[in-house]
């Protein structure tokens, strides 16, 4: 499940340190399902499925379930290996206030790639 990201990020002290300036909630979309991921000083404090249209975040990163499963393969296929490889091919989409994303771009790419272990299908929800 997507919640596995929380356990893995919070077990990675170096990654949390790189994200120590990040304090926000962002929307992570897997197909039709949106998840709200809340981060405090680089630590994920909450991941919950979005139920209300008024629940939202600073920005969103969305792709299909199949695309995230490919992204999370140990050796992802080309075009799926990085969010910024997925964007120009319109495999992923970002919206919202992009400033905090750009200020901490590698951190956000790293926390999302945390599910990369060949079990993307079962992890991806």
């Amino acid at each position: 499940m997507i919640e596995e990201i929380q356990r893995r990020v919070n077990a990675d002290q170096a990654l949390q340190h790189r994200g120590r300036w990040v304090n926000l909630t962002f929307v992570f979309g897997i197909g039709d399902d949106d998840y709200l991921i809340t981060i405090s000083a680089g630590k994920i404090t909450d991941i919950r499925q979005r139920h209300l249209p008024t629940d939202t975040g600073s920005f969103s990163i969305r792709a299909s379930k199949d695309s995230w499963d490919k992204h999370w393969q140990v050796t992802p296929p080309r075009d799926y290996h990085d969010i910024f490889a997925m964007l120009p091919k319109q495999i992923a989409r970002i919206d919202g206030e992009l400033l905090p994303l750009m200020q901490n771009l590698q951190y956000f790419k790293d926390i999302i790639a945390k599910l990369r272990d060949g079990k993307g299908d079962e992890n991806g929800g």
């Binding site: 990085d82 771009l105 590698q106 790419k109």
Partner: peptide, 20 residues
């Protein structure tokens, strides 16, 4: 001024490095 140039440049081009 509100985005670290070195960090964001590296984060952009990291997408262009092969995962292998």
């Amino acid at each position: 001024p509100d985005v670290h140039g070195g960090d964001v440049q590296a984060a952009f081009v990291s997408s262009q490095v092969a995962p292998t």
